[in-house]
């Protein structure tokens, strides 16, 4: 009986450790990200050399207070964001008040993939 309790305890602790390691989407997005790939939308017709140069300049930081700061190397934007509880959709409202809705394809501590609903542009990012 005592052994059963110990085993249950170990299982419970392992499960908790697994959950905390995986993390919540809202916590995982809070980071400085840099682009590793862009495709779709206007990027689809872009020559590879230009695309590489664009990718190297793109970064975005999501902060815990719901703000973001995006940079493309030649221009920047900042505003607020909302990530759905399930981590499947992301809404960003820029400084001019325009909202952008995105689908989150993947979110982990080491990878963020979002697709713009309006243009189908897709961006893959990793921590900066």
């Amino acid at each position: 009986m005592k052994l059963k309790h110990i085993l249950s305890g170990i299982l419970l602790m392992s499960a908790m450790a697994f959950v905390s390691c995986k993390g919540k989407p809202k916590d995982m997005i809070v980071n400085k990200w840099k682009a590793t790939d862009i495709s779709g939308g206007d990027m689809g017709s872009m020559p590879d050399s230009l695309k590489k140069s664009m990718i190297s300049g793109i970064s975005i930081e999501f902060t815990k207070d719901g703000k973001y700061m995006a940079n493309t190397g030649s221009s920047s934007d900042n505003g607020t964001y909302t990530l759905a509880e399930d981590g499947k959709s992301l809404s960003m409202t820029g400084k001019n008040g325009t909202a952008e809705e995105s689908t989150v394809e993947e979110i982990t501590k080491s990878k963020l993939v979002i697709v713009d609903k309006a243009s189908s542009a897709r961006i893959v990012m990793e921590p900066k």
């Binding site: 206007d42 872009m46 230009l50 934007d77 952008e100 979002i114 713009d116 309006a118």
Partner: peptide
């Protein structure tokens, strides 16, 4: 503007 609009604008500038 948002992330994608900012990127699209920068891309257009580079393409043009």
């Amino acid at each position: 503007m948002g992330l994608f609009s900012t990127i699209a604008e920068a891309a257009q500038t580079q393409i043009q």
